[in-house]
């Protein structure tokens, strides 16, 4: 697969070989970065970050990744300061921005925006989240974090906890994990179960899947617990939400029954689904996960720019 000029829009466009390759390049770049402090693969190249929606981690880690590669960054972090406010179409915005840059990163509130941008632009486009659809670089950095922590992904028992119905992160992650020999525990309230078609697809692809509402019961089995936020607005009434919220908080008491080596992950931002007391424990992997965003995005930027 030719990487130069390739768009990164959806994890569906990735084969297992593609994923493994990105993870390997990210690891190499992380090591090089540790040795040298900064790199200059992308010197003279410009990244445009188009954030039509707010973000902390994704935007800053893309920008950090480009700087670490020796390139520079232009862009905006809210649509309100651009011509979009005057009614400019997305296609025109992309055609304009590509005149100024060598690679585009886009986050947009509409599903499919990154696909459209990739079709319009000559330069590579990387999707940093399109509405509730895809966020492929998050999935890749999640896999990278697991691989760095365990040295492998095969053979692990991974629990996905929280809003499995609407959460785009867990959908893409589950689909990517299906390339590996893993057991998946899908832990959620009844109301927020993983959509049937995804569960079916996982099973067809050979993943052993267990669906449960019982976090406490599942915890001793797990190697990884991937926690996501349960959103209040998904519940028809407040009382139901409060009940669920309480029963899915990850705290030190719950983790007493976990394997010593269990790692807790979270795409962040968190609200109160992981108690801050967990932060200092050996289980907490979520800040390391944040760090993974940089080498993985360096790999993707470098590969699509064709400079590695």
């Amino acid at each position: 697969m030719e990487w130069k000029g390739r768009d990164v829009v959806s994890i569906r466009d990735f084969s297992k070989e593609d994923i493994e390759f990105v993870l390997k390049v990210a690891e190499r770049l992380e090591e090089e970065l540790n040795e040298k402090g900064s790199l200059d693969y992308a010197r003279g190249k410009i990244l445009a970050t188009l954030f039509f929606e707010p973000s902390t981690r994704t935007r800053l880690s893309f920008e950090s990744a480009m700087h670490r590669l020796g390139g520079s960054v232009i862009g905006f972090s809210s649509a309100s300061s651009t011509s979009v406010k005057k009614g400019e179409s997305l296609a025109d915005t992309i055609r304009t921005v590509e005149q100024y840059s060598d690679v585009i990163v886009i986050r947009h509130p509409m599903e499919g925006a990154a696909r459209l941008a990739a079709e319009v632009a000559e330069v590579p486009v990387i999707n940093a989240g399109d509405g509730s659809n895809q966020h492929p670089t998050q999935t890749l950095l999640d896999l990278y974090t697991i691989k760095r922590a365990f040295g492998r992904i095969d053979g692990l028992k991974i629990g996905l906890l929280g809003d499995l119905k609407y959460g785009r992160t867990v959908h893409s992650l589950a689909e990517a994990l299906a390339f590996y020999d893993v057991e998946l525990y899908l832990i959620s309230p009844e109301l927020l179960r993983m959509p049937k078609h995804i569960v079916e697809e996982l099973k067809v692809r050979g993943v052993r899947v267990y669906e449960t509402t019982d976090l406490e019961g599942a915890i001793p089995e797990l190697d990884v617990l991937y926690v996501t936020r349960i959103q209040r607005e998904r519940f028809p009434d407040e009382e139901e939400y409060l009940k669920v919220k309480g029963s899915y908080q990850v705290n030190c008491k719950l983790l007493k029954n976990a394997k010593e080596t269990l790692k807790v992950m979270h795409p962040l931002p968190r609200v109160d689904e992981i108690h801050p007391e967990v932060d200092k424990s050996e289980h907490a992997l979520y800040f390391r996960q944040v760090f993974s965003g940089v080498p993985v995005r360096m790999a993707l930027l470098g590969l699509t720019l064709g400079v590695l």
């Binding site: 959806s10 997305l90 296609a91 599903e111 499919g112 925006a113 696909r115 459209l116 509405g131 895809q134």
Partner: peptide, 27 residues
């Protein structure tokens, strides 16, 4: 996005029997 921008809607056929389609844009 296909409902907001000047673009022809496009679907990929996931299965023919029963018919199931995936939107090229929002998936």
């Amino acid at each position: 996005v296909s409902n907001h921008e000047y673009v022809r809607p496009k679907f990929h056929v996931v299965s023919k029997e029963p018919l199931k389609l995936r939107c090229h844009y929002c998936e």
